[in-house]
């Protein structure tokens, strides 16, 4: 009777992959921890950072296509602001965006009638000294969303 011997232990004939997997895993963890992905931030650009001539008195309600739209920003409390200007009076970014959009539509029609381009309209943001940076950014963003391309800042009042 033919005796069956113990089953021979099977070893992989290929190269031992364990050290490779160890090293590769270490590299992977290093890259995951050391990498800077910066996906949570972006940039608001201004092509005319500071407009000469500070904010004088209260801005009027007239809409002129030759002068920049001036938005005067004041701080009513550390967490609140009020933005006022040519037919503008808003205390938050959404309301300001709506008012600026309407203003731009009116100015756009006047510019077309005068044979000028809508991109010629510039916006001058004039924040007060104590206005928070967040509120300045909110006002700039509202103007950008409303379609204004030239946005600058005036000296603090």
């Amino acid at each position: 009777m033919k005796m069956k011997g113990a089953k021979a232990v099977h070893y992989e004939s290929g190269p031992n992959m364990t050290p490779l997997v160890d090293v590769v895993m270490v590299i992977l963890i290093f890259l995951m921890l050391a990498g800077q992905f910066g996906g949570a931030e972006h940039y608001l650009a201004s092509n005319m950072p500071l407009v000469k001539g500070g904010s004088g008195g209260e801005p009027g309600n007239s809409v002129s296509i030759d002068e920049p739209v001036e938005i005067r920003v004041d701080s009513t409390s550390p967490d609140h602001f009020v933005a006022r200007g040519n037919t503008i009076n808003a205390t938050d970014g959404a309301a300001l965006y709506g008012q600026l959009q309407a203003l731009r539509a009116r100015m756009g029609a006047a510019l077309k009638a005068a044979g000028k381009k809508e991109s010629d309209i510039s916006v001058k943001i004039a924040p007060g000294r104590s206005v928070r940076f967040q509120h300045v950014v909110t006002v700039q963003e509202a103007a950008m969303r409303a379609g204004f391309e030239k946005i600058g800042f005036a000296s603090a009042h």
Partner: peptide, 25 residues
């Protein structure tokens, strides 16, 4: 985000003096 515009203003003036064309926040 909490700093006042008075803190930012000198930096914007410096950018204007150096004729920097684009300033990003």
């Amino acid at each position: 985000f909490e700093m006042h515009y008075a803190v930012l203003e000198p930096v914007l003036i410096a950018c204007a003096e150096a004729a920097v064309k684009t300033v990003n926040f």
